[in-house]
Design a protein around this nucleic acid. Structure first.
Lengths: 341, 341
DNA sequence: CTGAAAGCGCTTACAG
DNA sequence: CTGAAAGCGCTTACAG
């Protein structure tokens, strides 16, 4: 046989029509068990696989999802946020479970990705991860919704958002971890991370932090909040240095991400401050390395396995035109050494 | 307009034939500049994108590569080797540069992936990462080659291999890092990692290690080599404990991967041994976190950006039926604090 | 430089 | 339960 076998080759061998072959292979009930069995055997024997392009063209969908990772073009290759990377792992697995393929791509906000993926029928739906500044992304997302693009965004629920989103409960997570710190007797807690509208996740974590303080009747001191332009170790290091240099007293640091926390850990070590004896440090995300920092980091876990699953199910609902609603997943404190518990 | 626009819609609007539209959009020289311009404008205006399924079906290829990550099904989601993850990043980017899409999937060695991807025309070529035990994988790879599957394996060059591979020079990397350790006066160097045929990378690193010792006229002590069933922090931790418990004297540890080294660091810290004062520790891979371990890890860098590029170019060569040869990329020592330089 | 037509390999109404 | 036939939306040899 020259070239890849087609359904006609099988039909010929099985002595049936090509239609029957197609039906048998797609699991149609309109075919007798014996015929189906014979066809399946031949297919296996000659290593036949349905041509996806033909099948997709005919059925007008691709059984493929696209994962679009947005990223700051200024950051370098290797510094992809490990949190996104574990999301990628779980999304890949969730797709496989649902019989979908996963296309992965890095994008810039300016790119024409919606068109590129969905309009060209490369993917039936999109999953957006790490869109950068939400304020900038919002109008584009809105336009996508209007165009009927099937997509879901990973992130915080934002008032007035038009797109579907799945995220973890950042407010609750921030509240829980701060409550934990308070339970350990910490009172002056530095917060590293942006709290602007453009970073809804971080802002929500800060909001939860503030709520916990309020419930404990402790005044929120804005001097203890340090901006972090990005979620990297380097930025966390610098932010902690800024906090140190400010002369503010503090007995704990709540970094809005583990990467920031790990940077803070380094700055504190250099400054000769013992963690957790002198300063408790906690992060957010529970990325794999947080377990191996020195000391191991107390943090807030977002269940990435579940998140990947929910993300995939959500786009799938959109694709099937079924009801799909925004989801907020619970966040859980993971106590390790860095907080001093 | 109902449904997605097709090339016929554009042809109608532009007052030309559908063939001309297709040619104009594919950049055929057989179309006048004015016609092309008009067509392109209309396409943009009505948000037209070539249907990939139709195009691929007709052209008999998919302009897509598949990245297959093999993994031990027993390990949990989040523990994907960070080294593979950065490879993934660079492979994704390299694909984009070449105009290819990237399908990502986790596989088990037993799966029917070759069929699943290439035979079904989902991907034109495959990139294999982390195939587990090479001895087990070999027969399957050989069969793939015989079937004409276009794929490239990331890893060490193995005598008698039939498939195309791209890897880093693990022998040279192992030699260089050991030479570095020797230059610092270290003489009894523990090696953590398997050295069997099933793990050709690790075996090569050990071979380089042995070569360096030999050149320095130092006897290789097999008692200082500790197996590591897997490349994880946990396993590294245990292996270092085994080494410690063995009662062997050692003034350095060369772990075959950074993850193993980071585990060793933890075991040494617990044992009250100062790194690098009492024991030098070095790893291999230069994964992002190695820069943030305490102390920062001296390691061997595999240039993942370059590796991703070469991997993609290699499969592309195979696909285009051009000459493709096995590639070995240089490895470079990255000196940080953990070695005591 | 342009158009009419065949065909890529399927899926699925339609007819039996 | 099965077959003949149309058609998904392109690309490209063929003819002009």
């Amino acid at each position: 046989m020259k070239g890849k076998p087609t359904s006609f080759d099988i039909a010929y061998r099985a002595g049936v029509s090509q239609s029957t072959v197609s039906r048998a292979l797609r699991g149609s009930p309109l075919v007798s068990p014996e015929t189906r069995k014979r066809i399946q055997e031949i297919a296996k024997e000659i290593n036949y696989k349905v041509d996806k392009n033909a099948s997709n063209l005919r059925r007008q969908h691709s059984v493929t999802l696209a994962l679009l990772l947005f990223e700051d073009p200024t950051t370098d290759d290797s510094l992809i946020n490990p949190f996104f990377l574990s999301m990628l792992g779980s999304i890949t697995r969730a797709c496989a479970r649902h019989g979908y393929d996963l296309l992965v791509s890095f994008q810039q906000l300016s790119d024409d990705w919606h068109a590129d993926y969905q309009d060209s029928h490369k993917a039936d739906g999109l999953i957006l991860l790490g869109y950068g500044d939400y304020v900038k992304a919002k109008p584009k997302l809105q336009k996508l919704v209007e165009q009927g693009t099937k997509f879901v965004r990973w992130g915080s629920l934002v008032p007035g958002q038009s797109e579907l989103s799945v995220g973890c409960d950042n407010v609750q997570g921030g509240r829980s971890i701060t409550e934990h710190l308070l339970s350990l007797g910490r009172r002056r807690i530095g917060f590293i991370g942006n709290v602007s509208e453009g970073s809804p996740e971080f802002a929500d974590r800060y909001r939860g932090h503030a709520e916990a303080l309020k419930r404990a009747k402790i005044k929120l001191d804005p001097m203890l909040q340090i901006d972090a332009v990005d979620s990297t170790e380097q930025v966390g290091y610098q932010a902690a240095q800024t906090l140190l240099a400010s002369g503010q007293r503090f007995d704990a640091i709540f970094a809005a991400s583990d990467l920031l926390a790990i940077g803070a850990l380094r700055a504190l070590a250099e400054a000769g401050l013992a963690v957790p004896q002198q300063v408790s440090v906690v992060g957010f995300d529970n990325i794999p390395i947080s377990n191996y920092s020195i000391p191991p980091l107390t943090t807030v876990s977002q269940d990435t396995t579940r998140a990947g699953e929910v993300l995939v199910e959500s786009v799938l609902n959109l694709i099937r035109e079924e009801a799909a609603e925004n989801k907020v997943l619970p966040a859980q404190v993971v106590v390790r050494k860095s907080c001093g518990a």
